[in-house]
């Protein structure tokens, strides 16, 4: 069962950690250019769902399909290649390499993919402009504010023009004003590039930037659009 036109789909996912059932038949689907919020209480399985969808964690059972390819039957090498080229990631904290400047951090995914330094930094700077952090390009992460650091991280997650952006509590460590700015710029940038965004959050004001939400509880998912 793959909803028509969806980019990333998961059906019947289960994942057990020791005695804990983190996922118990979870389902998910997202279209290109769509922002879907994944909500639910702490420990409900929403981060495990994100990690499975992103190919970081392998589910015990169930099928994940990305752009017509079955993620769940790929080798580790194939999955990590996919993560580097097609997926972008933003987390709550500590994603930037402290020894590198902000522009070097943003350019890093391109450099790892073999782009030459100058070209990589030029692309990185254009993303930093979009996220309104070009003025901290030459500073190290330790020298910028939390809000600026998070926007640098968002610029880095988008620098390879991913088709899916995974954001796990991207505003969790920020105050209201910076959280708003991150959400506004992140969703604008994603919509402009037609990237799909999987947004894990427990904050409703953050989820209000999405197009629709699914709720995860006790490892099971509920698509609220179809439920009503």
């Amino acid at each position: 069962m793959t909803p028509a036109g969806s980019l990333l789909t998961a059906v019947g996912l289960t994942k057990t950690y020791g005695p804990t059932k983190a996922l118990d038949g979870a389902e998910f689907s997202i279209h290109p250019g769509e922002v879907v919020a994944v909500m639910g209480p702490s420990g409900s399985g929403k981060s495990t769902l994100l990690h499975c969808l992103a190919g970081i964690v392998t589910p015990d059972s169930g099928v994940i399909t990305y752009a017509g390819r079955e993620l769940t039957s790929m080798s580790d090498a194939e999955r990590s290649a996919l993560r580097r080229s097609e997926f972008g990631f933003v987390f709550q904290f500590g994603q930037l390499v402290p020894e590198l400047t902000c522009v070097e951090n943003v350019a890093l995914p391109l450099r790892l993919a073999g782009t030459r330094r100058k070209a990589a930094e030029r692309t990185a700077l254009s993303w930093m402009e979009r996220l309104q952090v070009e003025d901290v390009a030459d500073k190290r992460p330790g020298e910028v504010s939390g809000g600026q650091g998070q926007r640098v991280a968002v610029a880095r997650s988008l620098v390879t023009s991913p088709r899916v952006l995974f954001a796990d509590e991207p505003t969790g460590a920020l105050d209201s004003l910076n959280g708003e700015l991150v959400m506004q710029l992140l969703t604008e940038a994603a919509r402009a590039t037609n990237a799909a965004v999987v947004l894990v959050t427990h904050e409703t004001r953050v989820a209000a930037w999405s197009d629709r939400e699914i709720v995860v509880r006790d490892g099971r998912s509920r698509d609220m659009e179809r439920a009503i």
Binding site: M39, T204, R205, A207, A208, W209, S210, D211, E213, V215, R217, R222, M224, E225, A227, I228
Partner: peptide
């Protein structure tokens, strides 16, 4: 109460998206 919460959240979110 969890069902009630999910249904109410969906309704609140609908309005919150319009406001956003």
């Amino acid at each position: 109460a969890a069902d009630l919460l999910d249904t109410q959240r969906a309704e609140h979110l609908r309005l919150m998206r319009i406001l956003t």
